[in-house]
């Protein structure tokens, strides 16, 4: 998995290095590496670029999904963001904040597409439930096995309740659940909300989601 590859590059870094972190989140651990990877990529190291893509592309994907872009728009914005990042590589002032740069670019580009002439139907998260059967990943195949049926049910319920949360919570959680947990700085850049408000908002949204799950007896 990409995640393992990414994490294997990480070094132990004191938490105090991150001024925006109330506590350590997974993404933060790798942050010191991001600056070094950007520098290597600037110097022409394609492997460093690949590691950046693998580490940060879940964040970009989560942002475009948080804004409910259609599949086609999400794919286009995702590409625009990475093309622009490749173009600006070496001119980015704070390479260690490349994640925030990408998140902020994804946010602006998503909002622009939503405002633009194109009016496409936003993605309906519950619709995604129907996709499980289409393109199978190992995880999906696992869900098919009989002993995993209950777990599959739980995942579906969780996703349904998540999709029906209010827009603010749905957006925040969609960004937070990126495969590589983003730092609060990156979440802030993704959604244009203050770093200090993310922790309390996160708690409130997760509690709300849990209450919904409890109400349907799915805990």
């Amino acid at each position: 998995m990409n995640a393992i590859h990414w994490r294997s590059r990480s070094r132990a870094t004191p938490v105090t290095a991150y001024d925006d972190m109330p506590y350590t989140r997974g993404g933060a651990v790798d942050r010191a590496d991001v600056g070094a990877l950007v520098q290597s990529a600037v110097d022409g190291d394609a492997a460093a670029w690949k590691a950046l893509v693998e580490g940060l592309s879940p964040l970009v994907w989560s942002v475009v999904r948080a804004y409910r872009l259609s599949d086609a728009d999400a794919h286009e914005v995702y590409q625009t963001v990475w093309f622009r990042f490749a173009q600006h590589l070496g001119r980015i002032r704070e390479p260690e904040k490349a994640g925030s740069w990408l998140a902020s670019t994804a946010r602006h580009e998503s909002l622009k597409v939503l405002r633009g002439l194109k009016r496409t139907t936003p993605t309906d998260d519950p619709q995604l439930l129907d996709r499980v059967s289409e393109d199978r990943t190992p995880e999906q195949s696992l869900l098919d096995s009989e002993e995993a049926a209950a777990q599959s049910e739980r995942v579906r319920h969780l996703w349904q309740e998540f999709a029906e949360l209010g827009e603010r919570c749905r957006q925040l959680l969609r960004v937070l659940m990126a495969t590589q947990p983003p730092s609060y700085q990156e979440v802030s850049a993704s959604l244009g909300i203050a770093v200090g408000s993310i922790g309390p908002l996160r708690q409130r949204c997760l509690r709300r989601l849990r209450a919904r799950l409890e109400a349907r007896g799915a805990v």
Partner: peptide
């Protein structure tokens, strides 16, 4: 734990292509 569970759900239901 709930956030982690959401992360797994997203990996299954809405992974990056």
């Amino acid at each position: 734990l709930l956030e982690e569970e959401l992360r797994r759900a997203a990996g299954i239901l809405d992974p990056i292509p």
